[in-house]
Amino acid sequence: MIHLYYFAQIKELTQKKEETILWADGTVAELVKWADETYPGFTDYSWQVAVNEEYVLETEQINPGDTVAFIPPVSGG
């Protein structure tokens, strides 16, 4: 299992803030593929991915127990 977080416009697309999904192993790119199949239009948005609160590339491995967040372009300040 892995835990996913969605924020801002991504949260409005998925209509949820977070969820836990089954996950054996795979990369960020594979998770993105899952997200686009589950939430049509997901890849029309731009975002970065954070695994366990660190920004990562799409080639990063995701392991069971990890927390993954989709981070749309930030606008704090």
Binding site: F7, A8, A69, P72, V74, S75, G76, G77
Partner: peptide, 10 residues
């Protein structure tokens, strides 16, 4: 902060 920190405004 404006570049990196995961905060969003609507």
């Amino acid at each position: 902060i404006k570049k990196l920190v995961p905060i969003w405004k609507k």
